[in-house]
């Protein structure tokens, strides 16, 4: 009988069942890949890190004593690999380093609702790049992976109160980064779209976006 839940898969994997490992890989490769992409902001680097993460899982399967904590253990490995990769690529020096100072493209001068999907994705990546890795990781684990505070604390080897503190600070910074765009959105909502001074409807594509509310 093929095991289906995580615990059975992990126990089978630890007992030497290779198919159980493949099942675990297929189950978790997506979340780990998404986490790595957002942490590294690079898909090619994320692919390398995902491979390295699961190789470590394969090598160190005996070290996982609590099979209930597999997800936290897996993301801990992925997180450490991401931080190592960030250090190697000099994107961020360390968790205590200064905030990311990479030159980025200026924010679009259009309201948020007129942004295309790809522009919104670029903005998300732009805002994530502004955050320090220790803020970025808690935000990603919460917003993308939907981990609980306790799980994030286990992954980042910190306490729940520290996780909350970092998450709230990250959101405060995020709100500050998004403020100009959201302000334009509100100004566009208060005034008619054709006469909005900074709406610039002719300057940006509006296909697929909803018209501003009257």
């Amino acid at each position: 009988m093929i095991p289906t839940d995580d615990q059975e898969l992990i126990e089978s994997f630890q007992a030497g069942d290779e198919f159980a490992f493949v099942s675990l890989y297929n189950r978790y490769k997506g979340p780990v890949y998404a986490f790595c992409v957002k942490m590294l902001l690079s898909r090619s680097l994320a692919e390398d890190v995902v491979q390295e993460t699961f190789l470590r899982v394969y090598e160190n399967r005996d070290r996982l004593l609590n099979t209930d904590a597999f997800k936290s253990w897996l993301f801990t490995i992925a997180r450490n690999q991401c931080l190592n990769q960030l250090r190697r690529t000099n994107r961020q020096v360390s968790l205590e380093g200064q905030e990311h100072a990479e030159p980025v493209a200026p924010l679009p001068e259009i309201p948020a609702h007129q942004l295309e999907k790809s522009e919104k994705i670029d903005l998300v990546n732009h805002f994530l790049a502004q955050l320090k890795p220790d803020y970025r990781e808690v935000l990603i684990l919460r917003e993308y992976q939907n981990l609980s505070y306790e799980e994030i604390a286990a992954v980042t080897r910190s306490t729940v109160s520290a996780v909350k503190s970092r998450l709230f600070k990250a959101r405060r910074k995020l709100a500050g980064y998004m403020e100009p765009i959201m302000n334009r959105e509100r100004q566009g909502a208060r005034s008619p779209a054709p006469t909005a001074p900074d709406a610039a409807p002719d300057a940006a594509p509006v296909s697929g976006s909803t018209p501003p509310p009257a």
């Binding site: 997506g30 890949y33 995902v50 994705i121 917003e143 403020e179 959201m182």
Partner: peptide
């Protein structure tokens, strides 16, 4: 609150599927 919820909406618009080449390489 508006900014945080907007960020959440935007972040979920990005497809983050695993490329098949990743499985082969791994």
């Amino acid at each position: 609150l508006d900014s945080v919820l907007s960020f959440r909406r935007w972040s979920r618009q990005e497809p983050l599927g695993v490329p098949p080449a990743l499985d082969d390489a791994f």
